[in-house]
């Protein structure tokens, strides 16, 4: 009977694990798989957290480089102040919003829509009025996607033999691996390389080793300016690698602002459930021990 219980439990786990692929936003790869490495993130795992300093640097990289083409329209200025994020001081964000950003005001008494300085409650305005304007300003006509959810909207395709799939899944489930999107975005940002000589890159496109085959993206290398393109005020080395890591962490926060609260509450809940399950087990044993 125990044997059957275990067999069924294993079958059930394998069923769920094997079917819960949950991966691959990308192409059917029977080409050589792009191997996207996993990165160490401060926010990964059960005890992971965002680091406000890194998110602040990431915002700087975003506003100075990425914001030329990409919006983060699902973020509001007030999000930059709240706990669990970059945790900027409120006064600083208020003046940043008011000084550097203008949004449409309500129509005035004559019916004209004028601009007004942004306030905390406003969404962070993007560089373009609409998608069409965005496409028009790109050489290839590609649409630079909004980045609010980019790390949640990307994943990594793994090309494992079928018998390794359940093994990998159990590993990922035990580790609480949710950073595939961040790993991909980092790989993409640092993936602009010269292609081998036999590869012909179409006009208006750029070669990126992390981007799905055939590895052509309409986006140019954002860090073509190299190191020191963005000035860091906190002494962190101003390398392209750090820019990529910091902006990816910022975008990971942008896509999942409740992470800190989620993992904190999760720890409490898991401990509570563990205790309760143990107590209930012994209670069940006690009640059933009465039977003869």
């Amino acid at each position: 009977m125990i044997g059957l219980k275990i067999k069924t439990a294993v079958a059930a786990v394998l069923l769920a694990a094997a079917l819960g692929t949950g991966a691959s936003a990308h192409e059917g790869g029977h080409e050589a798989a792009v191997h996207i490495m996993r990165q160490p993130w401060t926010f990964s795992g059960m005890l992971g957290k965002f680091e406000p300093g890194q998110l602040q640097r990431g915002l700087k990289v975003y506003t100075e480089i990425c914001a030329r083409c990409h919006s983060v329209k699902r973020l509001s200025f007030r999000n930059l102040v709240q706990p669990g994020g970059p945790e900027f001081p409120e006064a600083g964000v208020k003046s940043l919003a008011a000084d550097k950003y203008k949004v449409d005001a309500e129509p005035n008494d004559q019916g004209k829509v004028l601009k007004r300085p942004a306030v905390l409650a406003d969404h962070i305005p993007g560089p373009y009025k609409n998608d069409q304007e965005a496409r028009a300003s790109q050489p290839g006509g590609a649409l630079p996607p909004d980045l609010s959810l980019i790390t949640r909207a990307r994943s990594i395709e793994t090309h494992l033999p079928f018998y390794m799939v359940p093994v990998n899944m159990v590993r990922d489930i035990l580790a609480g691996y949710q950073e595939a999107g961040a790993d991909y975005v980092y790989a993409f940002l640092t993936g602009f390389k010269e292609p081998s000589r036999d590869v012909k890159v179409p006009d208006g496109m750029n070669y990126n080793v992390a981007f799905p085959a055939p590895h052509f993206t309409g986006m140019p290398n954002p860090f073509a300016g190299g190191n020191d393109a963005v000035k860091y005020d906190d002494g962190t080395p101003q390398t392209v690698d750090n820019y990529a890591r910091d902006v990816t962490a910022f975008l990971a926060w942008a896509g999942d602002p409740s992470l800190a609260e989620r993992k904190r509450l999760g720890l409490l809940v898991m401990v509570y459930l563990l205790i309760t399950a143990v107590l209930l087990y012994f209670a069940k044993r006690r009640v059933w021990s009465n039977l003869h």
């Binding site: 819960g20 949950g22 991966a23 691959s24 936003a25 059960m46 949640r152 909207a153 990307r154 994943s155 990922d172 489930i173 609480g176 691996y177 949710q178 595939a180 999107g181 989620r262 993992k263 509450l265 999760g266 809940v269 898991m270 459930l273 563990l274 309760t276 399950a277 209930l280 087990y281 209670a283 069940k284």
Partner: peptide, 26 residues
């Protein structure tokens, strides 16, 4: 109820630490 507490333990692991694991990033 005991079985539920164990099942919910596994459930909570996904809710809090792997919420998007069973879904699709697209």
């Amino acid at each position: 109820i005991f079985a539920l507490s164990v099942f919910v333990l596994l459930f909570a692991w996904f809710v809090f630490y792997l919420p998007d694991y069973l879904g699709h990033s697209d």
